[in-house]
Design a protein around this nucleic acid. Structure first.
Lengths: 348, 348
DNA sequence: CAATAGATGGCAACCGGTTGACAGATTGAT
DNA sequence: ATCAATCTGTCAACCGGTTGCCATCTATTG
């Protein structure tokens, strides 16, 4: 017996790449506890399947050996990996920081590890990343996906998928409900004397950008403001700078942008042109990203609770992994207007 | 033949959790190509080990079946997982965004997947996360780790580890070389008439904060400026606000902070108190994080190429996985002063 | 006290690749 | 033509858990 242990220990050390003292297995525990490996396996993963007495013996032995399951060995027969994947369109975009964080936090709270990939805003890269991931994770979160509904549904047919920032029939989704925040914003602008509003749109293929424009239109209708839509070249600070001349040309005195980056770039450019914000033009961003309050004046913005989206999506996914059905309806989280200095009374 | 394929497809569908049509294996390929599974394995992972002819047959068959290796099955006997882990102290801290991005980008360029975890600034959580990860990744990157040198060395003994933002004897490290940037900053401040400088320190256990203070001291010595060190409660915008009164009390006309967040908070608070930046006090941050140029005036800062650190660290790690030795010396990446509006001539 | 149901542990096959050992086929040198 | 050296493919064991099935043992019931 001792001899067996010994020889076992003697053969294995060089096994793992870099001198890792190959960790104890259920076989080691079984030998120590005097039971069959399968019993150890059951004791460790099927509560109640073995008697309390043996359970204890095995747990003690496991503790003594400082046992840790080998995730790969477990994943192989079961397919379970204790891992969730997250694909974001652009890692440099701070919008996603909070989503990543939310997902990581609730994931690790339930002992799931987060695997991260970026699609670089490309539908093709996204699909490839998703496919590659799908085989190694238990479920997938897609944040602001750029690929077709069809492709996403196909992925969702294979493994649980949750989508953030987009609604897709038949796939569980978590989306900020923009209406509340937008209507607060438009009401506030109307109350401050604005009559003509411009919406600076995001990428054409962005579902969320369309959604926000619809919300703006509806709110402007209600509050009797004129609304025009302006296109941006890209949803970044730079894109915001570039759209400044269109904004001026539009004659609007209030601007709502697809996201905060556009708003910040726009504000910088307007200020550089000698225009006073908010006295001459009010600017309202979207998302309340990190840094939105660094500007002078600080940016008024419709806060999307991105962190909450990430964490809700992860929670949803984990529930689905436990066998629950995804919600039939999209989960909506409320947005709200955060009033800071970049919006205010129009001083004509 | 067709029948075999067919029956294979027919028996397996219920296998994987949620109707995943269990993917083809090397056995399927072997059957289709009329060779032994081990030959398939070799053809697919040991270039040159099989003849060009069979190689082609097998590759065709693999392509036809749309084969993808099962990472777990591969990981089990080999230990290789095609995965690198990254542990950051705080996911909300934008400093790490760039590091994450750099690591993800160069990792995925070499077909490695990034696994992410956060330590929430706690040495204990960090160690636990690291241990848990270590068994499932090929190598680990620790960004601004908070745990003891000893613990890190212990981890490094098991698997390749690369550390960012800290130097540890015997462990490969990637650190910004602060001297160049700091001396540019101090020289610029001296040239603008400043004589008394304050350094606002970061967390006491931060290696990098000490390092920066040493750099500031040395540069101030050289340029004949007085330097005092002030403590901050926490390295955030809020911490920056709180340290404002100490800064004023110190009589310094120029401030270098441990990081940009402190600088931004400090600037906000000073401005709120009616102090003009940079006419009365110059502020220089550290890192050039996302948003550092959103402020008015935009923040002058010593840029740490965090993205490059992340990507260099990942590259280093991947090289080590290929069997190369880690560098004996820490890899240093240059910092440089980015002059924006928050620093300038002292107008007494 | 016999019959039976339920609890518990063991056996062995299996998940899907990897790899050392080996044998048959080729090739080349003599 | 002979023999060694090299190539190439096969066999089978193995990585470390999981799980269906069965045997045994215990507790319950008539």
């Amino acid at each position: 017996m001792t001899e067996a242990t010994n020889s076992g220990a003697a053969t294995s050390p060089a096994k793992r790449g870099r001198g890792e003292k190959s960790s104890p297995t259920i076989y080691d525990i079984a030998r120590l506890a005097g039971v069959n490996p399968s019993t150890v396996s059951r004791a460790l993963s099927k509560p109640g399947r073995v008697s309390a007495k043996t359970q204890k013996i095995i747990e003690d032995a496991a503790g003594q050996l400082n046992y840790q399951v080998n995730p790969f060995a477990r994943a192989l027969p079961t397919g379970r990996t204790q891992t969730i994947g997250l694909i974001v369109a652009d890692i440099t975009n701070p919008t996603f920081f909070d989503i990543i964080r939310g997902a990581e936090t609730t994931g690790s709270a339930r002992d799931y590890t987060l695997v991260l990939a970026e699609s670089a805003e490309s539908p093709e890269t996204e699909l490839i990343a998703a496919r590659r991931m799908l085989s190694t994770v238990d479920g997938l979160i897609l944040a602001s996906p750029r690929m077709d509904d069809e492709k996403i549904r196909a992925l969702a047919a294979d493994k649980p998928v949750v989508v953030i920032n987009r609604e897709i029939e038949g796939v569980p989704c978590v989306v900020p409900d923009v209406n509340k925040g937008i209507s607060q914003a438009v009401r506030s602008l109307a109350a401050n004397g604005h009559q003509q509003l411009a919406y600076v749109a995001g990428p054409p293929q962005s579902w969320m950008s369309r959604r926000r424009w619809e919300g703006v239109q509806a709110a402007c209708d209600w509050y009797k403001l004129g609304a025009v839509r302006l296109e941006s070249s890209k949803p970044t600070v730079d894109g915001g700078r570039q759209v400044a001349r269109d904004v001026l040309a539009s004659g609007a005195t209030a601007v709502i942008t697809y996201n905060d980056l556009l708003a910040i770039g726009l504000m910088q450019e307007l200020q550089a042109a000698g225009i006073h914000v908010p006295d001459q033009i009010s600017i309202v961003g979207f998302d309340d990203i990190f840094g939105a309050d660094f500007t002078t004046p600080a940016l008024t913005t419709v806060r999307s609770p991105l962190g909450e989206c990430g964490s809700r999506a992860a929670a949803l996914l984990l529930d689905m992994l436990l066998g629950q059905d995804g919600p039939a309806e999209a989960v909506r989280v409320d947005t709200e207007l955060v009033v800071r200095g970049s919006s205010g009374r129009l001083i004509a």
